[in-house]
């Protein structure tokens, strides 16, 4: 496997890796570093890659594990996470602004979810993987994935309703 073959295999999912890394590590810079590091790792194990029939799932699993490690070392060194798309909820006059604000709320709500639910909602609702692939990536049983996903979706919805006081019964 030479360099161009390798890039042909890995480039299609580089954005997915980046977005998952960003979901977990929060900051864009961290996510960029992580993405670079991951592809470098993949490149080093390129001989093994040829044997995997699903390189993408393998890469996503690697991303997840790598980000967990980064987070652990971050906690150990006591660094704080900075998120850059947080916006203070002021009183927007235009409806458009309010809409955008609510959309940003979703980002914060996902950020507050447990790590596992975060990953699953990222993989399912944003990257649109099917359940079999997600099970492989996170190494969980299908029912467990569904339960986590359902919980995450419900939490987000309920929080959104709470924020907006829609009073849906």
């Amino acid at each position: 496997m030479n360099q161009s073959d390798f890039l042909k295999v890995v480039l299609p999912f580089k954005d997915k890796v980046f977005r998952l890394a960003k979901r977990l590590l929060v900051s864009s810079e961290e996510a960029e570093d992580a993405t670079q590091e991951l592809f470098f790792k993949l490149w080093k194990s390129k001989d093994k890659i040829a044997d995997y029939n699903n390189v993408e799932a393998f890469a996503m699993t690697m991303t997840k594990n790598y980000c967990y490690d980064r987070l652990k070392s971050k906690q150990a060194s006591n660094l704080t996470l900075v998120h850059n798309n947080y916006k203070e909820k002021d009183t927007p006059l235009e409806k458009q602004l309010e809409y955008q604000d609510s959309v940003n709320q979703v980002h914060l709500l996902i950020e507050k979810l447990p790590e596992q639910q975060k990953i699953i909602i990222q993989l399912r609702d944003i990257e649109e993987y099917d359940f079999d692939e997600i099970c492989k990536m996170v190494d969980m049983k299908p029912t467990a994935v569904r339960v986590a996903l359902s919980r995450a979706r419900k939490t987000i919805r309920e929080e959104l309703i709470k924020k907006h006081n829609y009073g849906v019964s």
């Binding site: 360099q3 390798f6 890039l7 890995v10 480039l11 580089k14 954005d15 890796v17 980046f18 977005r19 960003k22 960029e32 993405t35 670079q36 592809f39 470098f40 490149w43 809409y99 609510s102 959309v103 940003n104 709320q105 979703v106 980002h107 609702d125 944003i126 990257e127 979706r153 987000i156 919805r157 959104l160 309703i161 907006h164 829609y166």
Partner: peptide
Amino acid sequence: QEYAYMFTYFATIKAEVYTKTIAL
């Protein structure tokens, strides 16, 4: 309405791409 926020968010966040070149 709350689903509109969620799905709009999912769609916008998916537009984010990794712009740097991958150095091997």
